[in-house]
Amino acid sequence: HSLENRWALWFFKNDSSQAWQDNLHLIIKFDTVEDFWAVYGHIQLASKLSSGCDYALFKDGIRPMWEDSRNKRGGRWLVSLAKHQRHSKLDRLWLETLLCLIGESFEEHSQEVCGAVVNIRTKGDKISVWTREAENQASVLHIGHVYKQHLGLSTKAIIGYQAHADTATKSTRNKFVV
């Protein structure tokens, strides 16, 4: 069962003796439902990674960094987890995120999606969905609403969208919320 897109899974392991980009490794690319599960079944769950590590799933040809030409005008829907949620929620939310991406859950707005990242951090893990153009308000909001619904977050929970250009300058301003 072929997917609409070919996806690349990346792994980042923090090693401060190396440049950031040298810590980022492409694991594998896949473009079928069956290969997705083969990959998923052979890698560590996100909750088992050590702090400082990331997984990223991006469309083939887009590197999981702000600097990539297909990311630099974009931003991310960010889900921040409390420390205690690593064991109760992280793996389920990350899997739901992956299924939204490979299943093209955002309908025609799926073309705006670049990828998703899970950051494993001692102060609290984060999951984000990256889109390519922060100014495409209709697409960004559609993706945010659908994503929140798929994660099963309560209507009271609020997730924010931050433009990479703002994040790069250390501003944590939410451009949109759903």
Binding site: W37, A38, G41, L99, G103, E104
Partner: peptide, 20 residues
């Protein structure tokens, strides 16, 4: 058309042995 798959469809493949 676009290949869209809902989560239930995708999850059905999770533990399916690979066909060779």
């Amino acid at each position: 058309g676009k290949k869209q798959y809902d989560r239930e469809f995708l999850l059905d493949f999770q533990f399916m042995p690979a066909c060779i």
